[in-house]
């Protein structure tokens, strides 16, 4: 099976560069029209004026932060069960990008909240879950960083990722219940402005662009991890 040929870090190293290049281009192909629609096609929102245009990066970042965590947990589990080093490297490569997406979701959420609800931070169900998701990412990265032996770090962080991914929905629904109990649904991002079709199109294009970008940058990071881990097993420097 051709795919298995790429499963060792040694074979995957050159392929990752090509994949990264392709997905960077794809990210631009989706990103540029997405931004164009976001700024030059989508009309002003009657309630929030122009501030709502932040949605074109806030929602894609939030979606990607959740999506990357699940993909990361998947590759971590594959690496744990099949004992394949490359899968664990892929999980390790995804974590920083996922954390970055979560940070961006929080940052843009705050910048959107300030003009719209007058406060930088809103204990809204989704924003609060994003904050907890950031802690999960930080925990994953911190655990990896504090274990020297890469193989043990792979396995330990895989278990944490699996336990984490089971907890993400539980945390989300607990926070959602907690939010509706204490504050009622008056202030919440879920009541996004009525999504005119071109607004939706802009957001979907930006989401695809963020997705392509995440794949591309993870490929670069996998190469960096392979360089760090395999540096003296000879094949790297010829």
């Amino acid at each position: 099976m051709r795919f298995w040929k790429y499963s060792t870090p040694q074979n995957f190293y050159p392929a990752a560069k090509k994949i990264a290049a392709v997905f960077f281009v794809l990210a631009l192909c989706f990103g540029i029209p997405g931004l164009y629609i976001g700024f030059f096609v989508a009309p002003t929102d009657h309630q929030q004026g122009e501030a709502y245009r932040i949605i074109f990066i806030h929602v894609p970042a939030a979606w990607m932060s959740m999506f990357i965590y699940v993909v990361m947990a998947f590759w971590a589990a594959v690496g744990l069960i099949l004992n394949t080093r490359l899968s664990s490297m892929l999980a390790q490569a995804l974590a920083p990008t996922g954390a970055l997406m979560t940070f961006l979701a929080l940052w843009t959420g705050a910048f959107w909240g300030r003009p719209t609800w007058g406060t930088w931070w809103v204990w809204d169900a989704r924003l609060t879950s994003e904050l907890v998701l950031l802690f999960l990412y930080v925990g994953f990265i911190a655990l990896r960083a504090s274990i020297e032996d890469p193989r043990r770090a792979d396995k330990a962080s895989a278990i944490l990722a699996i336990v984490g991914v089971v907890n993400v929905p539980i945390i989300y629904f607990s926070v959602k219940w907690w939010n509706t109990l204490h504050q009622g649904a008056s202030v919440s991002l879920t009541k996004a402005p009525s999504m005119a079709s071109d607004m939706l199109l802009g957001m979907l294009l930006m989401a695809l662009s963020f997705w392509m970008y995440s794949i591309a940058v993870s490929m670069l990071r996998v190469r960096k991890i392979i360089r760090d881990r395999e540096r003296n097993s000879g094949w790297l420097n010829n």
């Binding site: 907890v132 907890n167 945390i171 607990s174 926070v175």
Partner: peptide, 13 residues
Amino acid sequence: LLILPLYIPVLIF
């Protein structure tokens, strides 16, 4: 750092 986020649902309920 690893565990506190996972304690949140129990704390809430």
